[in-house]
Amino acid sequence: MTRETPPAGHLLNETEWHTLRALADVIVPPSEKYGIPGAGDEAIAKTIVKDANYGDKLPRLIAALDTLNAMAEGAHRGEFAMLSHDQRQSVAFAFREEQPAAASLAEQLVTQCYYRDDRVVSSLGMELRPPMPAGYKVDNGDWSLLEQVQKRQPFHRPVG
């Protein structure tokens, strides 16, 4: 994997930044079939860091990335981001197994940023807009389905 320098003003150091991007790509890899990037895409990863900067999430994310790197060192004597694709997969899956809380935080941050990226949202057939102010249409539905229940006798419990 080639290395890029983390963006200026970044809240992560270089190792953490590369580890985050590599982990995000393991969780949600790029897809040729759907023509969409992986979650390790630079723009998406920047959003992940921005969203992590709330409450105690950033230190917890950094601790998770450190753990991942320690596991990578232990298993393959290398930084997580520098491992081969298969090695990253195996370390990340072991991390998910052994550190469920840390992995769940990473999943949450990755998905909340990935699934609002314009390229991804477009690929799902959604309009690029917030719900407000246009709202959405929902079919009123088939109310004839209620007829069966309407025929039922009242069955609330008497209280005497």
Partner: peptide, 28 residues
């Protein structure tokens, strides 16, 4: 979408890795 992904991941219906996108689209 975000809640779909998170729910799918939590409940083992959407995996990490290569099967992610197809599984997400089955659920979304």
């Amino acid at each position: 979408p975000v809640r779909t992904a998170h729910t799918g991941l939590r409940h083992g219906r959407i995996p990490w890795g290569s099967g992610h996108h197809d599984a997400f689209r089955r659920m979304f």
